[in-house]
Lab assay of single mutants.
Amino acid sequence: EMEYEEITLERGNSGLGFSIAGGTDNPHIGDDPSIFITKIIPGGAAAQDGRLRVNDSILFVNEVDVREVTHSAAVEALKEAGSIVRLYVMRRKP
């Protein structure tokens, strides 16, 4: 069973403070093209906020749908998102 969360982060000097993997051209798990959080960087915006978790998958960055995009398109969406970034994420319920 999945749960969904909308997380708004303010981009810090060091960016959003997380790493991603995945994409249609580089699936992270099997042939699932989802964009997954692979690392939360200590002291970064995501770590300070505390809600984003490793293995969360990002569905939307602001209004941009990143469910079926290449890795570089997801990176671009995050880069272009401005200083306030709304992430709509999905994760397995614990």
Rank of each mutant, 00 (worst) to 15 (best):
E1P: 01
M2D: 06
M2T: 02
E3L: 09
E3M: 11
E3K: 13
Y4V: 01
Y4H: 13
Y4T: 09
Y4K: 10
Y4G: 05
E6C: 02
E6A: 07
E6N: 07
I7P: 00
I7T: 04
T8D: 12
T8V: 12
T8M: 04
T8Y: 02
E10H: 08
E10M: 08
R11E: 06
R11L: 07
R11W: 05
G12E: 07
G12W: 10
G12M: 13
N13Q: 12
N13I: 13
G15S: 13
G15C: 05
G15E: 08
G15N: 05
G15V: 08
G15A: 11
L16R: 02
L16C: 07
L16I: 08
G17F: 02
G17N: 07
G17H: 13
G17R: 09
G17S: 12
F18A: 08
F18V: 04
F18L: 04
F18H: 00
F18W: 02
S19N: 05
S19F: 05
S19M: 05
S19V: 01
I20F: 08
I20Y: 06
I20H: 06
A21K: 07
A21P: 00
A21Q: 12
G22T: 03
G22P: 04
G23S: 03
T24Q: 13
T24C: 06
T24L: 07
D25K: 04
D25N: 14
N26A: 05
N26V: 07
N26G: 14
N26D: 15
H28L: 05
H28W: 13
H28A: 05
G30M: 09
D31R: 07
D31F: 05
D31C: 08
D31Q: 11
D32A: 06
D32C: 07
D32Q: 11
P33Y: 13
P33Q: 13
P33N: 10
P33R: 13
S34E: 04
S34L: 14
S34M: 14
S34Q: 14
S34H: 15
S34A: 08
I35C: 09
F36V: 09
F36I: 05
F36W: 06
F36P: 01
F36M: 13
F36R: 15
I37M: 02
I37D: 00
I37H: 00
T38D: 05
T38V: 07
K39F: 07
I40A: 02
I40F: 03
I40W: 12
I41M: 09
I41V: 04
I41D: 02
I41Y: 14
I41G: 06
P42C: 14
P42G: 12
P42A: 07
G43W: 04
G43L: 07
G43S: 14
G43A: 11
G43I: 13
G44C: 01
G44I: 06
A45G: 11
A45P: 09
A46F: 14
A46Q: 02
A47R: 04
A47D: 13
Q48H: 05
Q48T: 10
D49F: 03
D49P: 04
D49T: 14
D49A: 09
G50W: 03
G50T: 11
G50C: 08
R51F: 02
R51L: 08
R51K: 15
R51W: 06
L52M: 15
L52G: 03
L52A: 07
R53V: 02
R53I: 02
R53C: 02
V54E: 06
V54Y: 07
N55E: 06
N55H: 05
N55Y: 07
N55A: 14
N55F: 13
N55I: 11
N55P: 11
D56Q: 14
D56C: 02
S57Q: 11
S57I: 10
S57T: 08
I58Q: 00
I58Y: 00
L59P: 01
L59H: 15
F60H: 11
F60I: 08
F60E: 11
F60P: 00
V61W: 01
V61A: 11
N62H: 11
E63L: 06
V64H: 09
V64C: 13
V64G: 11
D65R: 09
D65H: 14
V66W: 04
V66M: 06
V66G: 01
V66F: 08
R67I: 03
R67Y: 03
E68G: 05
E68K: 08
V69N: 08
V69D: 13
T70N: 10
T70L: 07
H71Q: 03
H71T: 07
H71M: 13
S72I: 13
A73K: 09
A73N: 12
A74I: 07
V75C: 08
V75D: 04
V75M: 09
A77D: 12
A77C: 04
A77F: 13
L78F: 02
L78I: 07
L78M: 05
L78T: 07
L78E: 01
K79C: 01
K79F: 01
K79A: 01
K79L: 01
K79W: 01
E80G: 10
E80F: 03
E80H: 02
A81E: 07
G82C: 08
G82M: 03
G82E: 08
S83C: 04
S83K: 04
I84T: 10
I84H: 06
I84F: 15
I84V: 04
I84N: 15
V85D: 01
V85N: 01
V85W: 02
V85Y: 02
V85K: 03
V85A: 13
R86N: 07
R86M: 15
L87T: 03
L87D: 01
L87A: 01
Y88L: 02
Y88E: 09
V89P: 00
V89I: 06
V89Y: 09
M90V: 05
M90C: 12
M90F: 04
R91N: 11
R91I: 10
R91P: 12
R92T: 03
K93H: 02
P94K: 01
P94D: 15
